[in-house]
Amino acid sequence: MASYIKVENLDFFYGDFQALHNINLEIEPKKITALIGPSGCGKSTFIRTLNRMNDLIDGTRVHGKIILDGKSILKNEIDVVELRKRVGMVFQKPNPFPKSIYENVIYGPKRHGIRNKSQLDQLVEQSLKNVALWDEVKDRLNESALALSGGQQQRLCIARSLAMKPDVLLMDEPTSALDPISTLRIEELVQQLKEQYTIVIVTHNMQQAARISDITAFFLNGELIEYGQTEYIFTKPCDQRTEDYITGRFG
């Protein structure tokens, strides 16, 4: 099930430094929401609040609310392992485990207690098919994932996330380490995945946001300056700062 996320008055601090200021945003299911903005604008910090990856960093504090399908996820009693199962993440550099392709996909499900071989086989096939990698690797599932090309590795990482049957897929610059063709394939894939998931993608590549997203959010200096339908953000943004950024006249 694709989730609906509501963010209310979110502040975030690294020690004394406030990285996010009063963010209010709704992330809609079955849509691709792209977060754009210059380096240090807070977009990566923001995406990491959505599955509490920032908890892993010492000295961080967060105020405000993030509501995932009606339930606040910033409360202490929330099981973050369960949360990250529902809110999967794909990173900038493909980071497959130094294991076989097969093992990479089932790593999460296995740790969550799925042992049945045929169930796991099915999961591997389904997940790899979802990312259009199955045909390329079905005859060498037991080979090391590290032998795959960068683009294949990234698709494998996405498959690994999908194997956990998440509701939300967070992608932090998933194509910045890939060549243009692999990038286009990932973009195609993301557009197909949105039929089933809620997708949030951070990208430095403005054109990528324009090409694939439904909603674009522009961050600057830890503030959410503007968000709305992508076609409007890129043709008639409301805020001058958005206009300056997307036209490359920044600063």
Binding site: Q207, A210, R211, T230, E231, F234, T235
Partner: peptide, 9 residues
């Protein structure tokens, strides 16, 4: 057309 140019390069 404008949207295509703006979003699809």
């Amino acid at each position: 057309i404008l949207k295509l140019i703006a979003t699809q390069q």
